[in-house]
Amino acid sequence: MLSAVLAWVLALCAVTAGVLVFRFDSMARATFALLASLLCVAGEVLLLGLQYLGVVIVLMMTIEMAVMAVFMIMFMMNPAGLMPMAMLHNTRAAAALCAALFALLATGVLTADWPRATGRPPADPTFELGMSLMGPQILTMMTLGTALFATIVATVVLATRRGRYDRWGDDLRAARPDDPARGGVGR
């Protein structure tokens, strides 16, 4: 009973906070609204019996939104509400499209003949997840690992202002580096 009430409260909070993300005119406030919405999602995941994944989502979202708040402040369009401006474009068409998509999804959800649950939840879902990731789902795990590594490389490449290809040319064979100012050890 209590968990059912809690699930409803979390569901309402998740949607309300999600809508508020795009209603606030301050990007810092929007970040915290998004954090609230995602924490409500994590709460629903916890209520569904996935303790480990729920806690992972809580921790990840909190750190992620803290990082995001820094970027928000860096790229804020309306700092401290001093420059009121519209952050939206093409609102009407987007609202119509999203309403139509929601109607489509809701029709699918409500009319689908959902299969009945097979089996019962294991005593320790986290153990099952670990065994699955290290067993039949090892390919998923390896793909995720490769994707994470590729992300590290991609972010470093994108964030580097001047790399060795800028200095030594595309084939890295320039006689001397193309630096904006001379300096260093006798160059």
Binding site: A11, A14, V15, G18, V19, V21, F22, M27, S37, V41, E44, M68, F71, M72, F75, M77, A86, M87, L88, H89, N90, T91, A93, A94, A95, L97, C98, A99, L101, F102, L105, A106, V109
Partner: peptide
Amino acid sequence: LAAALFCTGLFGVLTQQSVV
């Protein structure tokens, strides 16, 4: 609930001007 959150997010993606 998931559909509502998804459509809200999609609205944001389609309407927001700031990349962040």
